[in-house]
Design a protein around this nucleic acid. Sequence first.
DNA 1: GTCTATAGCAAGATAGAC
DNA 2: GTCTATCTTGCTATAGAC
Lengths: 202, 202
Amino acid sequence: MTAPTPRKSPRQHRAQATCAAILEATARILESAGPESLTTNRIAERAGVSIGSLYQYYPDKQAILAELVRAQRAALLADLNAAALLAEGLDLRATVPLLIAASLKHHAHRPLLAQRLEAAEKTLALDAETAALKAQIDALVVKVLAQRGVADPRQAAFDLAAMVNGWADAAVMAGDSDTVALAARMTRAANGYLGLVPGSVR
Amino acid sequence: MTAPTPRKSPRQHRAQATCAAILEATARILESAGPESLTTNRIAERAGVSIGSLYQYYPDKQAILAELVRAQRAALLADLNAAALLAEGLDLRATVPLLIAASLKHHAHRPLLAQRLEAAEKTLALDAETAALKAQIDALVVKVLAQRGVADPRQAAFDLAAMVNGWADAAVMAGDSDTVALAARMTRAANGYLGLVPGSVR
DNA sequence: GTCTATAGCAAGATAGAC
DNA sequence: GTCTATCTTGCTATAGAC
């Protein structure tokens, strides 16, 4: 029922700074203390603004979280788009690692934040804009796979996304920071899923 | 700091029933409303006991959750043990689907509960007993893989567990109820990861 | 546009009767 | 062993001064 968008678009400089500070403070609390400890008072304190200012820009706590989730999805879409451009003209075997690397990028940057935001996303009722972003992400991967002759590309896109996401979460939480090696292992699994035989490059 | 075990071991019949009712009520609230709505008052109400009785057996809310998590881990360990027995004498290719099926069983039974409990586990500080169960689960899988000649079985056990878990969560949340087909697709990926070529049964 | 102060409320947990 | 009644705490969100 509540609109999870900011109350006003912050047009002035200091207002933009306030919004940014609120978002960054939320991210840091999520990383350091987890969702249980995420209270509006704490966000305001950590952002260096008062609780009153916070409610000037966000109607409620969920709206702040929703904005972070939206930003994360938008970044993923952008990276996947870049990967798709890079992969243009390449075959399936060469494309898969590019998609995996793009998906992994966020988990590598701020791993804990990425994981907690994904967890929050499952609880939150996502707004229209975030849902649209998710749909675009899905459509993009489906298209890339379909162009390269994958059978049932919708199913494959879903499965590969699920595989990579959960796996990445677990890996970063266990302290695995070698993203390159992780991506290589994931690629082995993805190739097996897609029916690509390992050695037969010739 | 707080011991996440029941205050007293319920030795009498009605006390056991009370404990069971509390656990089941917690599970149902988790399934139907999510972790945000999980309050001690609600648990007591749904269990048909008073809040006072609840605190007679559990020192705090976390302890109830911890017990559910522990039960889930214990069940997984039991199922994996059964799978390992079944797999005795079988080669790697035949063993992998058995392990996957065992891991998938819980997600299939009460999918939402399994997913929410795993999410809770990441937030909770897990008690010694649950940690021990996790270690046993890990050791079991490592042993099974090592016996069948998998290189770096520790890494493989971790990766396969991460892959299956995250993937299963996403699948059940999307409403995919065909566990058999899901297990088959996962097996393709696992085989690829392990370097097993698809067609070459011979 | 930002602040302080606080209303209003719900949660966790306890005391003490039965 | 179980209950009702209640204390205490801390959260969300608002009102109104500056």
